[in-house]
């Protein structure tokens, strides 16, 4: 009986004194923090990807709370819904921006762009790139060692073993831009995700003259300029023998895709085209019709 009482007393004293110490320490080392930081952090996706330019979501949240306007702050992962939620918490307006996605601008798969030598060093794009131009005749194309895959925090980009090229998963990609920075050949670009994931882009970055580019890769852009002539929206420019489609101007009419002699221009997620409709209907209406059809 005595033992039980004694142990209760001893434990009680230990417990009480611990509580007092904890209370005092918590008071002493209490850090006053804006409670909104926690709220903003909760609204963020919590991926800690660094795509916003801050190291981790909490730092981004702190920056948001400190900022007067949210124009320069943007969470690429959460996109507009997240930013408007953050804006609501802080009582600020956010600009509505379109969702983006990473696009791989090289289509030189193993069969279209044959290997002319064998690389035998560390399997790393940056290392291979600092050594030489690559295993194929094209000195601009994808090396295929997957630096983009390594840096992706969202498991959204993978090397297709058949083509040897990276492929972006539309659903998983958050456009954080890590792969864009990692690619030593600057092949990956962030482009507008597009309605229903529909995009048109030049799948090539080869700046060689047409003949050289074509010799190295059958699907290279040869800078012939047919697409420029075909485009009614001035969206396509040619620089250094390479066409580039400005995604802010492109209206997804798909005419350039049809005229490209090498198949370097890609379309994604479009319904199969009807030849007659393509040619006869004017561009502006084409877009409209397609919008209605889905």
């Amino acid at each position: 009986m005595n033992i039980i009482v004694l142990s209760l007393i001893v434990l009680g004293i230990i417990g009480c004194s611990a509580a007092v110490i904890l209370f005092l320490v918590a008071r002493k080392f209490n850090v006053q923090e804006d409670p909104r930081i926690d709220l903003v952090e909760q609204a963020l996706p919590g991926a800690n990807c660094g795509g916003c330019g801050f190291s981790g979501c909490r730092n981004f949240a702190e920056a948001c709370v400190k900022a007067d306007v949210l124009d320069n702050l943007r969470c690429p992962v959460g996109g507009t819904p997240t930013m408007s939620e953050v804006g609501n918490i802080l009582g600020l307006t956010t600009e509505i921006s379109e969702p983006m996605i990473a696009v791989v601008r090289c289509s030189g798969s193993c069969e279209k762009r044959p290997h002319v030598n064998t690389y035998n060093g560390a399997k790393n794009c940056a290392i291979a790139n600092s050594l030489y131009s690559g295993e194929t005749g094209c000195s601009f194309g994808c090396l295929g060692f997957g630096d983009c895959v390594t840096v992706c925090q969202f498991d959204a980009i993978h090397i297709n073993m058949e083509t040897g090229l990276p492929e972006v998963d539309d659903d998983k990609c958050t456009a954080c831009g890590a792969c864009v920075k990692a690619c030593p050949k600057s092949i990956i670009e962030l482009r507008k995700k597009g309605p229903k994931n529909r995009r048109i882009f030049v799948g090539c970055v080869n700046k060689d003259k047409g003949g050289i580019a074509r010799k190295a890769c059958t699907v290279a852009c040869i800078g012939c300029g047919k697409c420029v002539k075909e485009c009614s929206f001035d969206a396509i420019t040619i620089e250094n023998n390479l066409a580039y489609i400005d995604f802010t101007k492109c209206r997804l009419c798909r005419k350039c895709v049809a005229v490209c002699p090498t198949g370097a221009i890609h379309e994604t997620n479009f319904p199969p085209r009807k030849e007659d409709v393509q040619v006869s209907v004017p561009e502006a209406e084409t877009v409209k019709i397609e919008d209605l059809s889905k």
Binding site: N117, T118, Y119, N120, G121, A122, L131
Partner: peptide, 8 residues
């Protein structure tokens, strides 16, 4: 055959 290329 194809040449092998590797860093030193």
């Amino acid at each position: 055959n194809q040449l092998i290329v590797s860093p030193a």
